[in-house]
């Protein structure tokens, strides 16, 4: 079984975000990026399937800042092949463009499953998993928390709200949007990544035509003002804890 795992980087939200001069994008000069956590789960699930059934795992990513290292890290974790999709991409690639470039690259490959993250924090124009499935013209199941291979069929668990889960039986090829792998994504030491950079080959495939149909046009980025409702409790940790305690007492909770 061949499993392809599209991965990408997203801004690390632990760092503060800034808006650039145009007011229509993030200030990307100092931005810290990290692997989309859901893509990390997709890769983990693919590696677990590989360990169970001897699948071949290919990690693939659109050419972007520091992506080589991300792909080599995937190789260090156990991906058999790593592929960079090249093309004339701007600093921001929409989900439709990314999905189309990935579909162009993947359509010429042999594959049974495509596992990618259910969502990313920046997909303003929709989630890549289902977009990609439709550009590839194969079925999809998203918000997946369990995958098992039973001969030629693939059993998939899909989550709804309120703890409800649906089971589907699928015939590959298909695309799955992974919410969570069966276990926490594995960690790989930097030394192992460095080592694999010397031995692994990073293939390049052209992304081809990524012009897509209609889209909405971004006018403005702004920080949400929300309700701004919280009354802030100042002071030392001790004083803050005191205040919380008083509040709970006042509300009859303690």
């Amino acid at each position: 079984m061949n499993i392809i795992v599209p991965i990408k980087q997203v801004p690390d939200l632990v760092e503060g975000l800034e808006i650039d001069e145009s007011g229509k994008d993030l200030n990307r000069e100092w931005i810290k990026l990290k692997l989309n956590e859901f893509d990390d789960h997709a890769l983990e699930e693919a590696l677990l399937l590989k360990e169970e059934s001897g699948a071949t795992v290919t990690a693939i990513a659109i050419d972007s800042q520091d992506i080589d290292k991300v792909l080599f890290t995937a190789a260090a974790k156990g991906a058999d092949k790593i592929i960079k999709v090249t093309g004339n991409f701007g600093t921001t690639v929409t989900s439709h463009e990314a999905a189309k470039a990935l579909a162009n690259a993947i359509s010429s490959m042999q594959y049974d499953l495509v596992l990618t993250g259910v969502q990313a924090v920046d997909d303003r124009d929709g989630q890549i998993a289902v977009l990609l499935a439709n550009y590839l013209n194969v079925p999809h199941v998203s918000v997946v928390t369990g995958v098992s291979i039973n001969g030629g069929a693939v059993s998939v668990m899909k989550e709804y709200g309120g703890g409800n889960v649906a089971e589907f039986e699928c015939t590959p090829p298909l695309v799955l949007g992974i919410q969570a792998a069966r276990q926490t994504p594995r960690y790989v030491p930097v030394a192992k990544v460095r080592q694999i950079m010397k031995s692994a080959t990073l293939e390049e495939v052209a992304g081809g035509d990524v012009s897509v149909v209609a889209a909405s046009t971004v006018q403005k980025f702004s920080f949400p003002t929300g309700g701004g409702s919280a009354q802030m409790i100042e002071g030392s940790a001790e004083e803050q804890a005191n205040k919380i305690f008083e509040l709970l007492k006042e509300k009859g909770i303690k």
């Binding site: 997909d123 303003r124 439709n134 949007g177």
Partner: peptide, 18 residues
């Protein structure tokens, strides 16, 4: 999350999420 992107691609219409 399964329906919106599928309709967007199959019908070629714009999609805005979140």
């Amino acid at each position: 999350i399964e329906v919106a992107p599928a309709v967007s691609v199959s019908q070629g219409i714009s999609l805005t999420a979140y």
